[in-house]
Computed example of a mutant assay.
Amino acid sequence: MSNDANARLPYRPCAGVMLVNRDGKVFVGQRIDTILEAWQMPQGGIDPGEDAYAAAVRELGEETGISPDKVELVAEASDDFFYDLPDDMVGKVWKGKWRGQRQRWFLFRFLGEDADVRIDTPHPEFRAWRWSDPDDLPTLIVPFKRDLYTAVLAAFRPQLGADQTG
Rank of each mutant, 00 (worst) to 15 (best):
L19C: 04
V20C: 07
V20S: 03
R22V: 02
D23C: 02
D23L: 10
K25R: 06
K25Y: 02
V26L: 15
F27S: 13
V28Y: 05
V28I: 14
G29T: 09
G29M: 12
R31I: 09
D33Y: 14
T34D: 14
T34S: 15
T34N: 14
E37W: 06
A38G: 05
Q40R: 10
M41V: 15
G44P: 00
G45T: 07
G45R: 13
P48E: 15
P48I: 09
A52W: 00
E59N: 01
L60D: 01
G61V: 07
G61M: 08
G61Q: 09
E63P: 07
E63R: 14
T64N: 11
G65F: 11
G65D: 10
G65S: 07
I66L: 02
I66C: 01
S67W: 15
D69V: 08
K70R: 07
V71L: 06
V71H: 04
V71T: 12
E72N: 09
A75F: 06
A77M: 10
A77Q: 11
S78I: 14
D79Q: 10
D79A: 10
D80M: 11
D80N: 11
F81I: 10
Y83A: 05
Y83I: 02
Y83G: 01
D84V: 08
D88H: 15
M89K: 09
M89P: 03
M89D: 05
K92H: 12
K95Y: 12
G96T: 10
K97D: 07
R99N: 13
R99S: 13
G100A: 13
Q103G: 07
Q103T: 11
R104D: 04
R104L: 03
W105A: 11
W105Q: 08
W105V: 03
F106E: 01
L107V: 09
L107Q: 10
F108Q: 04
R109G: 03
R109V: 04
F110E: 05
L111F: 12
E113P: 01
D114Y: 13
D114R: 11
D116F: 07
D116K: 02
R118P: 01
P122L: 05
P124S: 06
F126D: 03
W129C: 13
W129A: 12
W129G: 15
D133R: 06
D135F: 04
L137K: 15
P138Q: 11
P138V: 08
L140G: 05
I141H: 09
R146A: 10
Y149H: 06
A151V: 05
L153G: 14
